[in-house]
Write a protein that binds this DNA or RNA. Structure first.
Lengths: 341, 341
DNA sequence: TTGTAGGCGTTATCAA
DNA sequence: TTGATAACGCCTACAA
């Protein structure tokens, strides 16, 4: 900006005004400035702007994992809205590590981000730092990984409802002895999915149902599934808390010589891009990730830009059952009126 | 910092020095300052620091796609080094769009990043802006997606060598009529893979080999593969330029009633996380993505921090053949001395 | 219509 | 050992 002012023999403030447009600057200088700006590929220093405005126009994002369809899609949704509104994203991955998550958040804060969108790592339990931030009035939105205690807006999936739908689907397709491979027990989502499963089993008075926890990865779920199936030979339907867990279960079932879905039906949660390519293709619950990402940013921007902050709301997005080949085909189409009571 | 100075009744400059540690500050004040800093969770404003130092300690990263194992691993490698050295990453995804890529880069530049690591979008051809930046001495490192014209350091995969290895493997396992499903023709990597394939076919005087281009996605490659296989019934081996293309080819082959690998062998490139779960599991070439990410940042930091810039080098990482079930088992183990001449 | 001046938060130099 | 000061680049209220 100094360069430009010097080269044109005018003051920096005039240049600044010219670049903003809507200011009292003569057409002539305006034009001269803009031409030189373009010629020099000049762009104002955002850090100086940020210093003056006390706003960085940057939003911090921490997700457990980047190379993951679900979070990938969430980020696409967030970028969509953020860029349109002149905000940048600063994206970090915690790799499901609570320590890393905390250091990412601190780092984003000292990078002066205007707000945070967080999908908490599965083991995160110590929320004191976040609570401090919230108390100071710092804008935070949680996405996907909710938390009952934190008074921040939350963008969630209807984990309970999805679990009910999945379980109903298994029952409808003739399964009688169900098992649930649940996610990490500390994780809010995992809890809700488990509740949905168990409540549905009770409602239908199933003679037998079990739940076993495992991590959200294929190795752990493979072990868990194998144990489960060995201990309970009669299990004929598995609701897995994620697609990756479902893949582990499929591998275990196949290894034991069980046919999917003839001997055992398996259903996942998330609809990974590759789930339809499995053999057999995986029945699962799709989540509207892009929409969730958009909503998260919209909500956050409202908190950033509005003076009077509303009560933190929860937005719960519905899942969608995607029926493929890993569950037996149903006699009845997917709506079952007598169950919605 | 002002707060702290006021509360302790000392000057800001003393606080600043105390926080830096290695300065002439009395032990007593040093301690008082640090205690208050901790109590207030105080962190210095990086934008002010950046303004003063003319360094943001932030590196801009643009990759075509985030939810992709390969780029995900590259980013993990980059984070590893960058965080250790006190740098942050600002990550963007171009979604393979040249326009978006350019606007990401401009945005990163005006966010004052100290350097860029770029994996160019496949259609990018207009490199004028990047050339301008390089001419100004701005540090840029290209990763994975190389470019002959740009005089920037490049972190590449031995696409040619990998393609040779893949093709040799097909030939060794008894395939005689090979086809290559190549990536976008503008893409440097795709060109090298194609060259490796064709040169190897020539070297072995194969009676028949064909190449067909398609995009790096399953839909497009499915169509391309189907056409290819319909037009050339006798093809018994396919080298796909990426795992996703390989998946498209597998789907097409299966649909036509061909057995993999009995009737046709298929080999991919990249080793996606899900490739080993396919039916049959996919033989492919693994790339050392994490190492590449590390190298990219190391190289960039050298350019950022060193006065005398060395000539831009190319680092070529070797691929590793991962043999699974989508190719027929070889009579000979994987080293074939007579071919290395 | 244009320019001057002060401040945003930090740091390094120099003076006290 | 401490503090005042100027500077980094930008912006706006106010003066010219």
């Amino acid at each position: 900006m100094c360069d430009i002012a010097q080269q044109l023999g005018i003051s920096v403030s005039t240049v600044s005004k010219a670049m903003k447009g809507s200011y009292d600057v003569s057409q002539a200088t305006q034009k001269r400035v803009m031409e030189l700006v373009r010629k020099l590929d000049y762009e104002p220093n955002r850090h100086a702007q940020s210093l003056y405005h006390k706003r960085s126009y940057t939003i911090g994002v921490v997700v457990p994992e980047l190379d993951n369809n679900f979070f990938g899609a969430i980020i696409r949704g967030m970028e969509n809205i953020a860029y349109k509104k002149g905000y940048n994203l600063m994206i970090c991955q915690s790799s499901e590590s609570t320590d890393r998550e905390l250091s990412d958040i601190r780092n984003l804060i000292n990078n002066q981000v205007d707000g945070l969108v967080l999908a908490l790592a599965s083991e995160t339990e110590d929320l004191r730092y976040l609570e401090k931030l919230l108390k100071r009035g710092f804008p935070i939105v949680l996405i996907d990984r909710g938390n009952e205690e934190l008074s921040a807006p939350q963008i969630l999936v209807d984990d309970f409802g999805g679990a009910v739908e999945a379980t109903e689907h298994l029952i409808r397709s003739g399964c009688q002895r169900l098992a649930h491979l649940a996610g990490p027990p500390q994780l809010y989502n995992a809890q809700k999915r488990q509740e949905g499963f168990e409540e549905t089993c009770r409602k239908h008075s199933l003679p037998q149902y079990t739940t076993r926890h495992c991590a959200f990865n294929m190795e752990d779920s493979f072990q868990a599934a194998r144990q489960l199936l060995e201990e309970n030979e009669s299990i004929d339907g598995v609701f897995a808390a994620s697609d990756r867990i479902a893949i582990g279960a499929m591998t275990a079932a196949k290894e034991m010589g069980k046919k999917i879905p003839e001997d055992i039906s398996i259903i996942g949660f998330s609809d990974l891009k590759y789930s339809k390519l499995l053999e057999p293709s995986l029945t699962t619950l799709a989540q509207p990730a892009v929409e969730m990402g958009k909503k998260a940013i919209q909500e956050l921007l409202q908190h950033i830009e509005d003076e009077n902050r509303p009560e933190p709301k929860k937005y719960v997005f519905k899942t969608k059952l995607v029926i493929r080949k890993s569950t037996r085909s149903c006699p009845v189409p997917s709506d079952v009126p007598e169950l919605t009571s």
